[in-house]
Each structure stands twice: as C-alpha cells, then as structure tokens.
Design a protein around this nucleic acid. Structure first.
Lengths: 198, 198
DNA sequence: TATAATAAACTGACCGGTCAGTTTAAACAG
DNA sequence: CTGTTTAAACTGACCGGTCAGTTTATTATA
C-alpha cells in the first residue's frame, strides 16, 4: 500500500519536470545540477532519485515532453478539414512559436549534442523525427497530387521544413534581439506561396 | 629571449586547435577535458595554459575557425561577377556541403549548446552571424531591386537561409541515412525559383 | 647565466549518486 | 475511536571521482 496515490506520484514527478524546465531556462541543461533542480522543486536529492534513475533520465523526460508538443499539433492539424498547403503553413507557424521559447531551445540544444554523441539517445529520438517527416511527406504528396504544390521531392521538402524549424529556433536562441518574428513569418509565407502549383 | 620564435608559437597554437577538433569530433566539446586535448597535442597542461587562458578561450578559437569557413565563401562569392540570385543559390549550396561533414556538425552542436549557456560565447557568435546576415541582406535587397526576386523582407529571408543551413546540418547529423542530398538540393532550388521576381 | 617554455605534481571546488536514519500515513487490532 | 505496526517516502550528510586551473621544479636556449 503506497502512502501516496499513483496520481499524486505522477503529479509530483511532473512537478520536478517543471522545476527542471525553469532551471534549464536559466543555465541550460548541461550546466544544471541535480541539487539545483531539487531546490527548485522543494525536494531532497534522495526523493529525486526516487522519481528518476539518473540525471539523464530527467533529460529524456524533458525531451519526451518537448516532442509531444509538435506531435499533438500534427495530430490536430491532420484532423482539421483544411487544404494540405494550409496544413503545412500552420505547422510551420507552430514550429516558429515553439522556437520562441528559450528554455526549450536550450534543452533541445543539449539534446542535440547528446544525440550526436550517444547512440542510445539518438536511436530513441530519431524515430520520432522520422515519424514527423513521414506525416509531413504525406501532406506534401497529397498537396502535389491535388495540384496545390509544384512537383517537389516530398521527403526532402519535409526534411527541409523540419530542419528549418530547429534551425530558426536555434538562431533565435543565439541572437534573440536580431529576430523580427513577423517578418520571418512573412518570409516563410512567401516561400510557401512561391511553391504554389500551376 | 624566447626559446621559440613567434612563428613556432603560432604554429603550435594551431596544433592545439587541430588536436581539439579531433578530440571534439570523438566525444563532442562538452565532454572534452583539457587533459585530453593536451594528450592529443602531445603537450603538458602547463604548456596548454601558456597558449590559452582558459578552456573557454579554446572554445572561442574553435568557434572562430568554424565561422571563418562561411565568411571566406561569402567574400569569394561577393567578388564573383554573377547575379545576386545566383549568389544566393551558390551560398546555399556551400552551406549544404558544410553540413555534410558529420564530424564538424558534432562539434558545432556542442558549440551551440555552449553558446546558449555562456554569454561571452554567444556575443561572439551573434556578431559574426549578424555580419553574415548583413551581407546576405545586401544580396537579397539588390536582387529585389533588380526585379530578380519578389518583394520579401530581406533581413528575415537572410535569417531564414542561415538558420536553414544549420538546421539541415543538424538533422543530417542526427539521421544521416534519412538524408538524400540531391533531393534536398533540388527542393532548395525550387524554393529559390519560387521566389523569382515577375 | 638569465629567462622563456615546459612538465609534472598538486589543489580545491564541484557534482552525481548513495544510504543510514527519520517521518508520515495507511492498516488494523482491541 | 485509539494506540500500534508497517513500509513507503523522504532527508541530507557524505563519498568517490573528475577536472579546470595553479604551482614548482626542470630544461633548453640565446
């Protein structure tokens, strides 16, 4: 018989994750200490390790949460009755909004470094990126078939869009002052419009 | 009287930087130790600190070297007698080629993470990327004025292109198997063509 | 010999993870 | 309703290891 219910346990775990996000917003995940997260979450270190096996496990939890955001957007857009090009446009917009959150970008950058270095982390998340590319590819293919889009290599274009999302997020994080988001959105709209089918 | 000449000193400094690149390619910059770089460069720690004030100074040196590549390309393209749109096209191509070098991407991802965390590093980066954006903006503005390009926010479009370069490099590093470069190039060409002026 | 360069040993701060002991709430007997 | 038992949940001091940076002794040269 646990002293706390499963719901409370989940909630408390979430509480730690949110504390970690706040800490990461300040110093990035790399320079983050477990002690710090514990302090932010008002929790002892021992208790922390009751919820996460290691610091890396915490990183993975943050990443999962971060990935879920785009997946949800995709699912919702997929179920909305709009043209495929409009779907692409809205998805691009969503990626931009996501890129305006500095804390997320910091954690993501650490993830990227970890992914490139550690095979385990890379395998775990490359599948999720591939899934997203696959969905995008479907939308693009459908748009081409419907004559909404010029004949463009669908998979490559999907890869370009996803890369653009992360690239913009990264650059925005590196130089926030140099980013005029309305203009960026306008530029991306023009890019998409330029691909409109005959 | 120095035991070694200034030329030898410069050369040895470069030797350390190259050793650091090799080490970083193996484990990334984040997990890199000064001792390791010293071992790779066949140098003692004391000697290392005769060439660099801190580990961060080494990071900045790597960063500078990495940035120099694109700057050289830009300078060369700026001096070539071609249309501005063609200049953009070739620059984009050059960024892609750079992104196909996995070892460098690994290092750059760590640099990005470090930049997001450390203010000094970030400042240095933003200066150089702003310069690049400025040059690109000039090309784009000229192309628009010449009617080669639709009226697009030049600064934003420049930012998008640069972000795309890093984004593609990153994604290619994370999932090399999923990247068909010829198709990517084709997609980017189509994107640029779509922006052709009336 | 005076001095710059280097090697090797050292320092001290930091941090992830552990664990012996403490608290707390649910379960249950009377 | 109340005292007792039980174990999950938690605490925080502590440890082992790492690593940036420093100090000191030595070497080589002009």
């Amino acid at each position: 018989m646990p002293r706390i219910t499963a719901a409370v346990r989940t909630e408390r775990r979430q509480h730690i994750i949110e504390a970690a996000w706040r800490c990461a917003a300040r110093k990035g995940f790399g320079d983050l200490t477990v002690d710090e997260v514990c302090a932010e979450a008002d929790l002892s270190k021992g208790a922390f390790y009751g919820y996460f096996d290691s610091k890396q496990a915490l990183l993975l939890a943050l990443l999962e949460e971060d990935a879920a955001f785009l997946d949800q957007i995709m699912e919702r857009l997929g179920a909305t009755a709009i043209s495929n090009v409009e779907r692409l446009r809205r998805f691009t917009r969503a990626m931009l909004e996501r890129g305006e959150e500095p804390a997320r970008v910091q954690v993501r950058a650490d993830l990227w470094a970890a992914m490139l270095t550690e095979r385990v982390v890379r395998l775990r998340f490359s599948t999720s990126v591939r899934h997203r590319r696959e969905v995008l590819r479907g939308w693009i293919g459908a748009a081409i078939a419907a004559g909404e889009l010029v004949d463009i290599p669908a998979n490559a274009f999907a890869a370009v869009l996803l890369a653009l999302g992360d690239g913009l997020a990264l650059h925005a994080g590196l130089d926030p002052a140099g980013f005029r988001w309305p203009n960026i959105r306008r530029a991306l709209d023009l890019l998409l419009e330029g691909l409109a089918g005959s």
